[in-house]
Design a protein around this nucleic acid. Structure first.
Lengths: 339, 339
DNA sequence: TTGTACGCGTTATCAT
DNA sequence: ATGATAACGCGTACAA
């Protein structure tokens, strides 16, 4: 039966072509490339030379189809404009790239419904595994995961419910910052929150716990806005705080963006930091060290979170890991002059 | 011949399965999904119902293999830690996602050799097209592109040499900033450069042209460091500037990061900005509006660059475009209090 | 150690 | 408008 010529996918050179040119079968070429130990050295060298000469490029689609493994990992993050998650991506890339895995990035926009839609859409790529942000996926999401038997590692937070996770305790970090402010003699501490995703909620929990323990929790001092965080919002929140006459001596911002905007507004309004008001942020982004005054904040190991989470997922994919892993990478309080 | 059961790739439901359940052939199901016009309404509805019921998920790998189109675009950016390129990614995603294209991201680390390696590696995915940063790819890179007949759109800069590009004139932007400083009465203007990639070089060209035209160019006032840019480096560069006693009345930083670090150091050392020294940055990142004093800088349309570049590439892929496109999105000088 | 036969899920081609 | 058949390039299973 004549082989009808069709449009080729890649450069045109196939395993078969390489095999012919080297005087071996296609499968031998495949073995030279993937399991060189199983091929005699003579053939190996010959084949490799031809591979080089012909500029052979493997075809991932064919490989995927034949092996039922896509060598692809789906990474779901809430936002592309937040450096925190980008740093995590960099850590992930550092591990996946050398391992021959491709990362597919999905932006959930902090929305569980969009997260579910993304999973549905990306299922077409049949990823071998998932890296997720946080623990608050929807029930349908989890069912879909289970149905497709997809291993997943959750990043940025911790849980003991049996899911793999790599991160740190958001609540402990929130508490630690408040204990620091308390230790500096502050009692009237406000909490400024934006976005109000699960991580901010847990930092808020930590804030409440610490202040309650010190007997100085006042719900009126919690300023919460569900809209996306921004420096402008931080500046506005300082105005709101003053307008409400809440008589604060410290503010704990749920992230550095708010804190940076708030610090700038303090400068403009002539409010002495930390004299009149101590200011604290969260994440230790690059600008935090360069504000006036430099910002006290929580340094988070987001790059390592990505790195280790990717390693953990690869271990699962290789079947090396059995028990659920819960890897706590901790956090560090960066005490600077704003407190 | 008995069909041996093997491991399935996706959820397990195939076009064939859907077809059987609906009493049609696999190809009809395919048509219902991709070219519904070519199928009778009765069948269409029936098939769609079964697709829904069985939870059919198309298999991209098989589609790719059979159609020689991967619906995948390779995006090469120099860095993940620079917000500029992340914003571009967001713009790209905004266009590719709804169009059913998957973006693969490669990080070149500002290195042409790595860029070439990435292209080689990603060729396995046989991307349908490329989105590149800048114009300075290696000769081998371009040959590889040509050999595989891959359409590419260059981002961030302009050229009239026949390659598709979307961006703005880096040199004009550098010149514009210097003309602004000159117009404010400054004559002893320093240039601080880091990374020294092609874009920084062009901004430097613009700086030189503007100052030469005004008759006040002094090469000694160019501080260039090939290492990656950082706020720390900006602070260090102010120290270096003062140590060298170059007697400057303005500094043009090649990006906002340098400028932010430099401004902070000015605060620490009690240097009045803009009184003693005017300071300018480049890119208009979020923190630029919140420094003390707020930073004069060049706002760059990076989000739109990503968006339009992706659209241009899609047009090429559809064969709609013929002549090379060179799309100038311009830039805007943000005059703030630092100058 | 090397090769043969076949299937992975889809689309292109051609026939009806 | 719908279907039959082959082909995409590779890896698995099994044979030699």
């Amino acid at each position: 039966m004549p082989r009808k010529s069709r449009i080729r996918a890649g450069s045109g050179v196939t395993l078969h072509d390489v095999g012919q040119a080297a005087g071996v079968s296609a499968i031998t070429v495949s073995r030279v490339l993937h399991t060189p130990d199983k091929v005699s050295e003579a053939l190996r060298e010959k084949v490799l030379a031809v591979v080089e000469q012909l500029g052979y490029v493997p075809n991932r689609a064919a490989r995927h189809l034949a092996s039922a493994r896509s060598h692809t990992v789906l990474v779901l993050i809430p936002s592309l404009s937040n450096t925190v998650f980008i740093d995590t991506l960099a850590g992930i890339e550092e591990v996946l790239q050398p391992a021959g895995y491709q990362m597919l990035i999905g932006n959930t926009h902090y929305d569980a419904a969009q997260e579910l839609q993304l999973l549905r859409a990306y299922l077409e790529h049949s990823p071998d595994g998932l890296l997720l942000t946080g623990l608050a996926q929807s029930a349908e999401f989890s069912q879909l995961l289970a149905r497709h038997r997809l291993p997943a590692v959750h990043m940025m937070d911790l849980t003991a419910d049996g899911r793999d996770c790599v991160g740190f305790s958001q609540e402990d970090a929130g508490r630690a910052m408040c204990e620091h402010l308390l230790a500096r003699g502050r009692r009237r501490i406000a909490f400024l929150g934006a976005q109000l995703d699960e991580r901010v909620q847990k930092r808020l929990d930590g804030y409440r716990a610490a202040l309650a323990a010190a007997g100085c929790h006042q719900p009126a001092r919690e300023l919460l806005d569900p809209r996306p965080s921004s420096m402008q919002m931080g500046a506005d929140m300082l105005d709101a705080l003053l307008a409400a006459q809440l008589d604060c001596d410290a503010v704990f911002c749920c992230n550095d963006d708010l804190a940076i905007g708030l610090l700038a507004r303090c400068q403009q309004r002539g409010i002495a930091v930390p004299g009149q008001l101590a200011v604290a942020g969260f994440n230790d982004l690059a600008p935090a060290a360069w504000t006036t005054p430099p910002l006290t904040t929580i340094a988070t190991p987001r790059h390592d979170i990505g790195r280790i989470a990717a390693q953990q997922l690869l271990a699962r994919l290789r079947g090396e890991t059995t028990r659920p892993a819960c890897i706590d990478l901790g956090f560090a309080l960066q005490h600077r002059k704003s407190s």
